[in-house]
Design a protein around this nucleic acid. Structure first.
Lengths: 252, 252
DNA sequence: ATGGGTGTTGCACATGATGCAACGACGACT
DNA sequence: AGTCGTCGTTGCATCATGTGCAACACCCAT
């Protein structure tokens, strides 16, 4: 809508692919060098873009700070976190929390049991939307036309032989998930990893987030993991209750 | 430099403090509502801003994705990570990696030993620049006038009684660090926590990053932690060598 | 019904963004 | 050493673009 801003913002994803010099930016934006320069300078002033020694531009530090603050302001996360930790302590597996936004599902919290894995490598990263348990839960709550629209637009990469193959299968799965109120991912993303998840609902009953427990085959079988389902659902419900309590419903 | 973009970008930190509605944004920007609307729409199209059910705006998901990709493109981090893990395994303490950028020092990697702490609460967050070992290392490498300029501009919060009290003390400390090639933070940020750090240098000898090992008093005394210094320095040097090898020096 | 509070649209104006061309700095190549 | 080529930078004239206004549409509360 605003051409100037539009152009400026287009620089960010461009630089996300790697550093670029002024000429490259101008070219890929389709504008004159001087224009690109001014945009970059403005981005620079706001710390979104950084100029390294070789004069090339790359994404800047303020982006982290912003993403940081953004995630910390999500009240669902705030409320859910202690519950996630508790669940993790009682079952020992990895626990995820995710939300849906603009056709994307992304993790906003994670509690990992054993290894001190680089957690940020996941947080913020888009989830494998067609197979993850949390993704199914979040999408299942959309209205039927919305679900259909999203399902059509998605790609269906076959991570494994048990990945969701196409839109039809996905919609069907969503219907099941919607009715049963929980979801699984049995080796659909990585052959040896299974997940069980449950939805977190706001005061109006709509799904605002989803959580899941993941564990590799080598630790527990899928059947064993499924025995955790009641516990997962209880946890999700606790979070829902607490969240509904603090949040004053704006809608009917 | 570009007024429109400048205004648009000013919205981001504003929203970082919490969701806001159109009126609030317009007011705090000092522009007409319709202007704010157009800016927000543009930000929205790029996914940097999200509109929640109550119509208020908050920071959007793409921000994470961008911050994500940004950090993953830092080649120092890529190279350093395995070394950090190794160091962590041999000493058991928390290991940090940080860089300097635009008068700020920020963590870009962290390996934590025991607890599955919410690691992202730190990564990307600005470091306590006047006391942290890594901050001293990074700033010590600046030219003398730069150091002075930065030191003057900083605040010197007294986190503890051993925090760096003022610019003079800080500059003095930087000189020491510069000469000895390593740095410590002995309870300067949190009373019970000590750190030892060493610089990582590029092919041209300039400090490109800094790493440190941190441990609370209750686990090891400061003296014991200092015995790790040789190991920390060796690790930093290994990273430096590897980084210098892969990076083709652009400057003399 | 009525009022105040939102968010939204269309439009006339001029501000501010644009591309050009010329300059300067630096390195490379001969 | 000299010259060419590349890249970033600047000032400027043009007019496309962003701007604020005022009116409208909407929702909720009274």
């Amino acid at each position: 809508m605003s051409q100037t801003v539009d152009r400026a913002l287009s620089i960010l994803p461009l630089l996300a692919q790697g550093p670029a010099d002024l000429g490259q930016v101008a070219e890929r934006l389709g504008v004159h060098k001087s224009t690109a320069l001014r945009l970059l300078r403005t981005l620079h002033e706001h710390g979104l873009v950084y100029r390294q020694q070789d004069q090339r531009y790359r994404l800047g530090a303020r982006l982290f700070a912003l993403a940081q603050e953004a995630v910390e302001n999500l009240d669902v996360r705030e409320i859910a976190h202690p519950h996630l930790v508790e669940l993790n302590e009682s079952c020992g597996h990895t626990v995820h929390l995710a939300v849906y936004e603009e056709q994307e599902v992304l993790y906003i919290d994670k509690v990992e049991s054993r290894y001190p894995v680089r957690m940020y490598s996941r947080i913020g990263k888009p989830v494998a939307i067609t197979v993850a348990a949390v993704a199914k839960l979040l999408l299942a709550d959309l209205s039927e036309p919305e679900r259909r629209a999203v399902a059509e637009k998605l790609d269906y990469p076959m991570y494994t032989s048990r990945s969701t193959p196409n839109a039809g299968a996905f919609l069907k799965e969503l219907t099941v998930v919607r009715e049963q109120g929980w979801a699984t991912d049995l080796g659909g993303h990585e052959e040896s990893i299974n997940c069980v998840g449950a939805p977190i609902r706001g005061a109006d009953g709509r799904v605002v987030a989803a959580m899941s427990v993941s564990a590799p085959n080598v630790v527990v079988t899928a059947e064993e993991l499924l025995t955790l389902l009641p516990l997962v659902r209880r946890t999700a419900d606790s979070i829902s209750r607490e969240y509904s309590g603090t949040t004053r419903p704006k809608k009917a």
